[in-house]
């Protein structure tokens, strides 16, 4: 009788141990979150990033977009003109697209004819414009993190970035930390 009880307890202890291990694994599993490093400033690629983000947010997935390098052009507000830029920053500012409506296509750009045609087609086929997509993204709580380093590199200022409800500025480690806990990570 005593012996049987002892083996029973040992068996139970083993099961508890296995369950604890499973719980620990679950705790460490990734969140229902999408992290995208948006590096490209091409209209088509920013569009792709926004469509995927909106679809994810509509499915209640938390979305965190890390904008860096060329993609910063998409976050510039053409109505804002920051002061106190040095010569090189001003040159960069002049040569790069001023806002999401001025982005070029990665293919078939044809000196701006391509984007014009795409915008026309998008309108005709009821695809949301980038402007509308950013508005929806804001309503859905999609977070945009701006890479401080690339902003400094290109001479962009915080004051010229768009008014977006969930906009913050951070470094690469923030993306790494966010992406580390996301179940989906993309680089566009």
């Amino acid at each position: 009788m005593e012996d049987i009880k002892k083996t029973d307890i040992q068996e139970l202890q083993k099961q508890i141990y296995a369950l604890n291990e499973q719980i620990e694994n679950l705790k460490n599993s990734r969140k229902d979150q999408l992290s995208i490093a948006v590096v490209s400033g091409d209209m088509d690629k920013v569009l792709a990033a926004m469509v995927i983000s909106i679809a994810a947010a509509a499915m209640d997935t938390q979305v965190k977009l890390f904008f860096s390098f060329w993609s910063l052009s998409a976050l510039r507000d053409p109505k804002k003109s920051p002061k106190g830029k040095d010569f090189i920053s001003k040159m960069f500012g002049l040569m790069l697209p001023n806002g999401k409506n001025k982005l070029s296509l990665s293919k078939m750009n044809m000196l701006g004819m391509g984007p014009m045609m795409i915008k026309m087609l998008m309108k005709k086929q009821n695809v949301m414009s980038l402007e509308q997509m950013f508005n929806e993204a804001g309503e859905l709580g999609i977070e945009i993190v701006v890479c401080e380093m690339s902003m400094g590199l290109m001479g962009f200022k915080k004051e010229e970035m768009i008014d977006y409800p969930h906009l913050s500025f951070a470094g690469a480690a923030t993306f790494v930390a966010d992406a580390g806990e996301s179940s989906i990570q993309l680089f566009i």
């Binding site: 909106i54 679809a55 509509a58 086929q125 949301m128 929806e136």
Partner: peptide, 13 residues
């Protein structure tokens, strides 16, 4: 019907 992807999903949500 007036929206393309991801419009309908968004409307549903």
């Amino acid at each position: 019907r007036g929206t393309a992807c991801p419009g309908p999903l968004l409307e549903a949500k």
